[in-house]
Amino acid sequence: MIYDLFIDDITENDKQMKQVKQLIIIVFLGFGLAGFWACGNNDEKNNKAVADTIKDYSLDNLDEAFDRAVIVFYALPSPVETARLFKRAGAPFDETLLNPTSNFEKYFNTRAMALNLGIYGADLSYANLFEQAQITLNYFATTKKMAENIGILEAVGDSTLEALRNNITDKDFVMGVISDVFMNSQAYLKENNRPEVATIIIAGGWIEGLYIGTQLAVTKAENQEPLINAVADQNLSINDLLNLLMVYKDHNDVKSIIKDVETIKKHLSVIKNAEGKVNMDDFKKMTDEVARIRNAYIQ
């Protein structure tokens, strides 16, 4: 940990030691967590909710806290996981819901590229899960180009693309490659001190998953109820997404995304009543709102 780099060298008097400890803990809490994948500590409500399991590591508890680090990760469902959830709930495949690969050239700034890398990643997972070989290849190639444009070098090597082409009908092989690409990209962004970009990619993928799920639920599914419930289950992870984004709340590229996710949360949190029944009017309102936000991202 950050303070480990110091502790062996500190030989100052107690007063200086206290100052060092304070600075180290401030940096650890304020900046250190920001560098770790899916990691954060700034959600007071959340921390209160688990106050019985997680100690309060405020400066008042500095000396106690100094001896050990407590890391909090928020593990968002991956696009692969969300696509499987919807498929299990009876979702069909609909190519018209994907962000067209021709949009790729529209994205120039980091925010747009990161959001749409997440969106294309979700589309790619969805297409592969439904064994759409040619669409999967197209989206994989677009994801590769987008990753390169955003500066993720060697996330997808040419040999990987070739292996994918040769095994495109093997859904599990392709999914394994996609998972490797996601993991390597996240690690690369961490390694290069761009964790906020990794977070925007996650947000893009999460919103695209919700977009696909809501659209299919209201327009395509033969039996809407399982899919509607699967979409409603996204309420479990939206707080984790918000917590993750809040780590970078002062970053210009993240601010507006937080606002969008808060809007979605407002809708998502009320679609089920106390008995667990989904109100379809509220569901449709949320569907429209998610579509508005997502469509703005892909423009």
Binding site: F73, P79, V80
Partner: peptide, 13 residues
Amino acid sequence: FLHDGRFNAIKLK
């Protein structure tokens, strides 16, 4: 099993 593609790893003590 298929790995979900998320990277949750960190150096600790």
